[in-house]
């Protein structure tokens, strides 16, 4: 299955957002996520099923004005 993770194309066989983070080495406790522009709360990572062409944004705290 092809998905987009922070703008990059990723081929993966995993089923859920949680498994994707595990596969990519992302610590789910210090990021926030959105799929196709919609916020996905952390508690839903393990039940959120990925699908073809899903656009996933995984954001971290960063400097800001």
């Amino acid at each position: 299955m092809k998905i987009y993770l922070n703008g990059k194309t990723v081929e993966t066989d995993v089923g859920t957002l949680f498994a994707l983070f595990e596969e990519c080495g992302i610590d789910p406790t210090c990021v926030a996520s959105a799929v196709n522009g919609n916020f996905v709360p952390r508690r839903e990572y393990s039940t959120f099923n990925l699908y073809e062409d899903a656009k996933i944004e995984v954001l971290s705290p960063m400097q800001g004005g």
Partner: peptide, 19 residues
């Protein structure tokens, strides 16, 4: 202090520790 959210880049861990 104001902060933002961005795709993880270089130095992200350092900033989190600073916060």
């Amino acid at each position: 202090i104001t902060v933002s959210l961005r795709r993880e880049g270089a130095g992200g861990g350092v900033f989190r520790q600073l916060l």
